[in-house]
């Protein structure tokens, strides 16, 4: 019996906000997201507005900041950098605004490879500041297949890159694990419709519980789907707590998340 009260403290490092044209999302607003967080034991969510990834990075980033302003103790923001929409301008905005705690890129949606020159400023900024970068990653994508991040890690070894979805498919997870085993700067995030507890266990076994992060993609997908896989996965409680929140607190050191200063600061 699982009970109705979540026993863990959670940091969700992969979230969005607002509507998405391809399908209807009920109650995609920040207030509802925080209400869901209250039910699931989520202290903090780091989000990038759907508008920022889908259509307009600048306007969407403003929506993310509005959510932070409404819930400064519960929500932190990624600045979405779209390589086609004045990336330097958004990087300057990120640098000057403490409400942003990281960068989000979506190479598949923006149809531009993570290894391309238009992303160079992102990796350089992240390496020089310690700002973490969350990227969509997708097995066999010409833009963000897990193996492509090995080239980023090789060239920018000081950049912490989170492989969102860890490649999405089971084969993509294997490829992500292989990349993360080669490069300590690569982290794995666990949300995705094909993810399972045994796959998460494989990540922890192969990479160690210290670089596997909980994320949900909510409200793109309900937060409890990804959370259920982690909560019920065959992990030790120590490993589970690392994944659910401990690692996120370690990763976000540049600008610590609400509720706690970054580890080591």
């Amino acid at each position: 019996m699982i009970g109705r009260r979540p026993p863990h403290r959670i940091v969700d490092v992969h979230a969005h906000l607002g509507p998405y044209s391809l399908f209807f999302i009920p109650e995609s607003d920040a207030a509802t997201m925080v209400a869901v967080m209250d039910r699931t034991g989520t202290d903090v969510t780091v989000l990038a507005a759907n508008r920022a990834i889908q259509q307009d990075a600048h306007l969407g980033n403003s929506q993310s900041l509005a959510a932070v302003d409404a819930y400064p103790d519960r929500i932190a923001a990624y600045a979405v950098i779209n390589p086609w929409q004045e990336p330097e301008r958004e990087l300057e905005r990120l640098a000057g605004d403490d409400r942003f705690v990281g960068i989000k890129v979506h190479p598949s949606l923006h149809r531009y490879p993570v290894t391309g020159a238009r992303y160079a400023a992102v990796w350089e900024f992240a390496e020089s500041t310690g700002c973490p970068v969350l990227s969509h990653s997708e097995h066999q994508s010409p833009y963000d297949a897990p193996r492509l991040f090995e080239a980023v890690a090789e060239r920018y070894p000081g950049t912490s890159v989170v492989l969102g979805h860890a490649g999405i498919t089971p084969a993509g997870v294997d490829e992500s694990i292989a990349a993360a085993r080669r490069y300590d700067s690569l982290w794995l995030e666990v949300c995705g419709s094909q993810m399972t507890g045994p796959l998460i266990r494989a990540m922890v076994d192969e990479v160690g519980s210290g670089r596997v992060l909980f994320g949900s993609d909510f409200p793109f997908i309900d937060q409890r789907m990804s959370l259920g896989r982690v909560v019920c996965a065959p992990l030790t409680e120590s490993q589970r707590q690392d994944v659910l929140s401990g690692n996120a607190r370690k990763l976000f050191r540049w600008r610590p998340l609400p509720g706690e200063r970054g580890v080591g600061q």
Binding site: R4, V36, G197, R224
Partner: peptide, 21 residues
């Protein structure tokens, strides 16, 4: 075909009242 944890947590930690659960 799916990880059972998805549905377990989805319903247990839903916003439904006890009777609806």
């Amino acid at each position: 075909v799916r990880d059972p944890g998805e549905s377990i947590v989805r319903l247990a930690w839903s916003g439904l009242d006890d009777a609806t659960v």
